Simulated scan of single mutants.
Amino acid sequence: MAKKEKKSSGRGLRDLTVKVKTARGRKMSSTLWLQRQLNDPYVSRANAEGMRGRAAYKILELDDKFRFLVPGARVVDLGCAPGGWLQVAVPRINALGDKSGKKVGTLLGVDLQEVEAVAGAEVHQLDFMEDDADQKVKDWLGGKADVVMSDMAASASGHKQTDHLRIMALCEAAAYFAFDVLDEGGTFVAKVLAGGAEGDLQKLLKQKFTKVVNVKPPASRSDSSEKFVVATGFRG
């Protein structure tokens, strides 16, 4: 009798768990990180589909739920490195104009790091927290935006509360930029870390948008404190 083939879980491309031995000179934390990467279905999927990292699926899943990346949308992606969110946005907003009969969208990416070009997106290297950075982005945009999305994150310090405050400062900077450039009815999406200080941002967003929700998409690791705030219906 033939051996029954093992079925895939459906969430990824890898059925077997890969274990990594600790090599000489490699810290245990590095070994555990490598093992997690090798067994992460989203990492496998990103490699198979040519996406620049598993984070691409976070914005994909958020857009599947809230539908803000539509043909013709004018989108700003803050903290766009390595470019996964740009890859997802380009076809959805029809930035290349290859969807006949659909409006053509505009996509602007900004990051502190240099980002490899993505067809259909305009990308600039810039520290968004420096003076007049927001004005530079507005000049590049050349008008209003329909969506401002931010995946900005500060370098980890190892101190949970410090990291939380740093990322919340980035989120607030992104939010105030969104208030300045969003068209009426626009959407703001940003990564935050659970830790207490996000309450003030929530209150601020609820004054400016008709609906504000917190979401942890399936692509966000369960052991991570990150979540995403999605604010829709900008009041103008």
Rank of each mutant, 00 (worst) to 15 (best):
A56V: 04
I59S: 11
I59W: 10
E61G: 10
E61C: 02
F66Y: 15
F66L: 10
G72V: 03
R74F: 02
R74E: 12
R74P: 00
V76I: 15
V76L: 04
A81E: 12
A81Q: 09
L86M: 09
L86K: 05
V88W: 08
A89T: 08
R92A: 02
N94K: 01
A95L: 03
G97F: 11
G97N: 09
G97W: 08
D98C: 04
K103I: 00
K103W: 00
V104C: 03
L107R: 05
G109H: 02
D111W: 01
E116I: 02
A117K: 14
V118M: 04
A119I: 00
G120S: 13
A121E: 03
A121Y: 02
V123R: 03
V123M: 02
Q125V: 12
Q125R: 15
E130F: 00
D132M: 07
K136V: 12
K138A: 15
W140C: 08
L141W: 03
G142C: 06
G143M: 10
K144P: 01
V148C: 05
M149I: 14
S150Q: 05
D151Y: 06
A153S: 15
S155R: 13
A156I: 13
S157Y: 05
K160T: 13
K160M: 13
Q161V: 13
D163S: 10
H164N: 06
L165T: 03
R166D: 03
A169C: 00
A169S: 15
L170H: 00
A173Q: 13
A175V: 07
F179A: 09
D180I: 01
V181Y: 07
L182M: 04
D183V: 09
D183L: 04
G186F: 08
G186M: 06
K191E: 07
